[in-house]
Design a protein around this nucleic acid. Structure first.
Length: 563
DNA sequence: TCCGGGACTTAGAATTCTCGGA
DNA sequence: TCCGAGAATTCTAAGTCCCGGA
């Protein structure tokens, strides 16, 4: 196991990220194995033996049959177009309608495989073989340190699963070959050996970047990278820097806020648009909102790319004045819906920006993220729109923890408070999740348990009373009986409280994802300091992976740390 | 100033693992 | 000991932001 690295050892020269990098190259997924003889594909009711290439793609679809994706028109169309490209001329001539395709046996085979795997022992699941792959490909040597590689496995082929209403969903993600992969490593290192009979696309020695391998993905034409694990020195240092920038914002945020409040009155429309956008980014933790290529991705927006149709102005709503109602799809097509009272100057500006525009027109027609970030970096070096999210998330956690936790609380209560503070951040950042499938059932189960425990407690109390009475009346035959009964009542009460707290926590968490903010937005030093103050073990908050990732913070943080 | 390429962080879903209760 | 729910981890899509060239 790797030990966490200390950070003071060496400072990198400006622009040079590393001096020595050696690795084995990425791991390629196994080749496609043809279907067994008893599994068939049918077209129009007739058995059809597909060519290997077409069969592989058919299997991708067949495996997904339970998924909603396969019912969507766009997904089906894209899949069918790409599938036909893999077919032989003969197959193409025959298979002309996806609706006439029967993947039933392929689907059944897949389900049976999944089921069989469930019942396998660890050995059968090839745990050891997988460990061997990790041992061989999962590590690299970076400036004399052995470091874990994050995603050392090349992405297997499959059907593209874009989020939301993605125009390219269902397209074929092609199998990657070594010939597609660029390797990056030191000149003087052992160059990774490509799989037998293959060669790499290119070998590069660029020490100003942190990736070990890269390729161009065939759906959007974007780059993909093999990079280091989050617990690596390189990533850890970057993470630390991110929070230091956010802390610097803390020291000048008042000035910046005053500035944009002033700018709301500017005679220059561009300045006023920038000020309103900044007001949203600061107050609502909206993302910057880069421009996107139309038709290439799902239609989502952030602050700068908001359109008129995404907001509704209410002079008065629910006894508040100047309310802006937001309704748009953000990153990952997650809906942002919020009704926010704003100051009058913002409200008036919004009205002006919306004048004479159609619903599909840009709200901030004189603004984009480049202009916004240029302005921000002039106010503070390193300041960009996303720093506000980090800053507001972390400061909110710190404030909420102060407000909610008492040293005298029991551990379960402290953890509930922590989760509530975490939740406040997740709500601010709009981190949502689909409610777990079995949510209602599991809540009901928990309630049943709580009820049972309540009965048990009542019984224990009665027994205690009885024992006391008997002890008083005739001097007990068992002198420790009362003590034992007392302990039983106490135990019962503790268990009941724990369950009730758990139920509250779970209910409040139904549609909220805490993980994203914990992983990306909350300065871990706030949490480490809180744990020390509250005498809560860090393991209660951070999983093993998070403790590794935040090793730098766990090492360096004292109880008196202030964000 | 605009544009596209490039590198990196952030995101929810899918998959795998683990642990507590029957 | 077995099972299943929930936690942890993995996966990879989808953002942000910077840079360099025209």
């Amino acid at each position: 196991m790797l030990l966490s690295v200390r950070w003071e050892e060496e400072k990198y020269e400006d622009g040079v990220k590393w001096k020595f990098l050696e690795h084995k190259g990425p791991y390629f997924p196994p080749e496609y194995h043809p279907l067994p003889d008893n599994v068939h594909f049918y077209y129009n009711g007739k058995k059809v033996k597909l060519s290997l290439a077409a069969e592989e793609v058919a299997v991708f679809f067949g495996q997904m049959l339970d998924h909603e994706y396969t019912t969507k028109k766009v997904f089906r169309n894209n899949f069918f177009i790409d599938w036909r490209k893999e077919m032989t001329d003969e197959e193409r001539l025959l298979i002309e309608d996806l609706d006439k395709c029967d993947f039933g046996e392929i689907h059944a085979m897949h389900k049976a495989k999944v089921e069989a795997r469930k019942n396998m022992t660890k050995e059968e699941k090839l745990v050891k073989a997988n460990q061997k792959i990790t041992d061989e490909y999962g590590y690299c040597l970076l400036d004399h340190h052995k470091e874990r590689v994050g995603n050392f496995k090349i992405e297997p082929p499959g059907l593209f699963r874009g989020r939301g209403n993605h125009p390219k969903q269902g397209m074929l993600k092609k199998r990657l070959q070594p010939e597609d992969i660029i390797i990056n490593c030191s000149k003087e290192s052992c160059i990774p050996v490509p799989p037998a009979g293959h060669r790499w696309k290119e070998i590069r020695h660029d020490n100003t970047v942190t990736w070990l391998a890269s390729w161009t993905e065939n759906i959007q034409g974007s780059f993909k990278y093999v990079m280091l694990n989050a617990n690596s020195k390189l990533k850890g240092e970057k993470d630390w820097q991110k929070y230091e920038v956010a802390r610097r914002l803390k020291s000048c945020v008042d000035d910046i806020r005053n500035q944009y409040l002033q700018d709301l009155k500017s005679t220059d429309r561009r300045t006023r648009q920038r000020a309103v956008a900044l007001y949203f980014i600061d107050k609502l933790a909206l993302r910057a909102g880069n421009e996107k290529e139309e038709g290439e991705t799902a239609d989502t927006v952030g602050c700068c790319s908001l359109r008129v149709e995404h907001i509704t102005l209410h002079e008065e709503l629910d006894s508040s004045e100047c309310v802006v109602e937001f309704d748009f799809l953000g990153k990952d097509s997650i809906r942002y819906y919020n009704k926010v009272p704003v100051i009058r100057k913002v409200f008036k500006n919004l009205k002006l920006f919306m004048e004479n525009k159609k619903p599909g027109d840009e709200l901030f027609d004189c603004l984009n993220t480049i202009k916004l970030n240029k302005h921000l970096s002039s106010l503070m070096p390193g300041l960009t729109a996303k720093v506000f999210r980090t800053y507001n998330a972390s400061i909110t956690l710190q404030q909420q923890l102060k407000e909610l936790t008492n040293k005298s609380d029991c551990e379960a209560e402290k953890l509930l408070s922590y989760n509530r503070a975490n939740r406040a951040v997740a709500i601010l950042c709009n981190h949502q999740r689909a409610p777990p499938k079995s949510f209602e059932q599991s809540m009901a189960n928990l309630q049943t348990k709580i009820d049972a425990r309540k009965e048990q407690l009542a019984l224990a109390k009665t027994e205690l009373k009885q024992a006391k009475k008997e002890a008083k009346a005739k001097g007990s035959t068992d002198p420790k009986l009362v003590e034992r009964k007392k302990a039983a009542v106490k135990r019962c009460e503790e268990q009941l409280l724990k369950m009730e707290v758990q139920a509250t926590d779970r209910e409040e968490n139904k549609q909220i994802a805490l993980g994203t903010s914990k992983l990306n937005y909350l300065d871990p030093r706030i949490t480490v300091a809180w744990c020390k103050n509250m005498e809560v073990p860090i393991e209660k908050i951070y999983s093993k992976t998070l403790r590794d990732k935040f090793a730098w913070a766990i090492d360096m943080t004292d109880a008196d740390f202030e964000f």
